Computed example of a mutant assay.
Amino acid sequence: MTPLVAPIVSDYETSSDLASLLVRTTQDDALSVPAETLRLSCKCAHCTRARFDGRFPETFPGIAITEIGDLGYGLNISFSDGHNRGIYPKTYLLSLAGR
């Protein structure tokens, strides 16, 4: 019996319009996560506190990805609203992409 192997992020880039993160896995899956989904899913301390205090926005219309830093285990993604504190573990990115 062949063991099931979970997909692993092998590569990533932004879409040409900066509105999505395109993720490729070791299983040759090509996945897309909208920038707004990423921004809404940020788990940094600042965003977590804003949610707790009821100050976190419900939407981020027109948000774009401006920079990506690869930390090995995850990506530090910066957005057009100036937010750059979020670190997205690669397994978390796959879950946001529905994998």
Results as ranks from 00 to 15, higher is better:
residue 80 S to Q: 07
residue 96 L to C: 11
residue 72 G to S: 12
residue 38 L to W: 00
residue 71 L to A: 08
residue 53 D to Q: 11
residue 41 S to N: 06
residue 75 L to Y: 09
residue 96 L to Q: 01
residue 25 T to K: 05
residue 91 T to L: 14
residue 19 A to F: 01
residue 3 P to Y: 00
residue 66 T to M: 07
residue 81 D to S: 11
residue 61 P to M: 07
residue 24 R to M: 03
residue 77 I to Q: 00
residue 82 G to A: 09
residue 26 T to D: 09
residue 95 S to A: 15
residue 81 D to M: 12
residue 57 P to D: 10
residue 19 A to K: 05
residue 64 A to N: 13
residue 77 I to K: 00
residue 69 G to P: 10
residue 8 I to F: 01
residue 23 V to C: 00
residue 33 V to K: 01
residue 69 G to N: 12
residue 96 L to T: 05
residue 99 R to Y: 15
residue 25 T to M: 03
residue 55 R to G: 01
residue 40 L to W: 02
residue 86 G to A: 15
residue 47 C to H: 08
residue 81 D to Q: 13
residue 43 K to C: 09
residue 97 A to V: 11
residue 97 A to D: 10
residue 92 Y to I: 04
residue 6 A to P: 09
residue 25 T to I: 03
residue 19 A to V: 00
residue 31 L to H: 11
residue 6 A to M: 10
residue 42 C to W: 02
residue 98 G to A: 09
residue 16 S to N: 14
residue 37 T to K: 14
residue 20 S to V: 02
residue 45 A to E: 11
residue 73 Y to H: 15
residue 69 G to R: 11
residue 14 T to G: 02
residue 92 Y to G: 06
residue 51 R to W: 08
residue 36 E to A: 05
residue 18 L to V: 08
residue 5 V to T: 14
residue 92 Y to F: 14
residue 22 L to Y: 10
residue 53 D to H: 11
residue 27 Q to M: 05
residue 29 D to M: 01
residue 62 G to V: 05
residue 60 F to E: 04
residue 14 T to I: 05
residue 30 A to N: 11
residue 42 C to G: 07
residue 16 S to P: 06
residue 48 T to Y: 13
residue 9 V to K: 04
residue 79 F to T: 04
residue 38 L to I: 04
residue 37 T to E: 07
residue 84 N to H: 15
residue 76 N to H: 13
residue 76 N to Y: 08
residue 63 I to E: 07
residue 90 K to G: 06
residue 66 T to V: 12
residue 93 L to A: 06
residue 13 E to R: 15
residue 27 Q to G: 05
